[in-house]
Amino acid sequence: MAARTTGKTTAKKTSVAIDQVAWHAVRPAPVVLVSGPEQFLADRAVRQLRDQLVAEDPSLEVHDLEADHYQPGELITLASPSLFAEPRLLRVVSVEKCTDAFLTETLRYLEAPADDTYLVLRHGGGVRGKKLLDTVRAGVGGGVEVVCTELKKDTEKHEFAAGEFSAARRRVTGGALRALVTAFSDDLAELASACQQLISDAADEITEATVEKYYAGRVETNAFKVADAAIAGRQGEALVLLRHALSSGADPVPVVAAFAMKIRTMAKVQGVYGPSGQLASRLGMAPWQVERAQRDVRGWSEDGLGRCIELLAETDAAVKGAQRDAIYALERMVTTVATRGAVGR
Rank of each mutant, 00 (worst) to 15 (best):
T10L: 09
K13Y: 00
Q20N: 01
V21G: 00
A25W: 00
P28H: 05
P28S: 01
P30V: 08
V31H: 03
E38H: 11
Q39H: 04
V46N: 04
D51I: 11
D57Q: 12
P58D: 13
L60V: 06
V62Y: 05
A85N: 14
L103T: 07
T104S: 08
R122D: 05
G124Y: 01
V127D: 11
G129E: 07
R137P: 04
V140Y: 01
E145M: 13
V147R: 14
H158I: 10
A161E: 04
G163T: 08
G163L: 09
E164L: 11
A176M: 05
A179H: 07
D187I: 00
L188I: 08
S193H: 03
A202S: 13
A203E: 13
I206D: 02
T210Q: 05
Y215C: 03
R218W: 12
E220R: 15
A230Y: 14
A230S: 15
A232N: 07
G236M: 05
V256L: 03
F259L: 06
A267T: 02
Q270Y: 00
S281D: 11
L283T: 08
R292N: 14
R295I: 12
R298P: 13
S301V: 13
G306I: 14
A313L: 12
E314H: 13
Y328N: 09
T336H: 06
V337K: 06
R340G: 08
A342G: 06
V343I: 09
V343W: 04
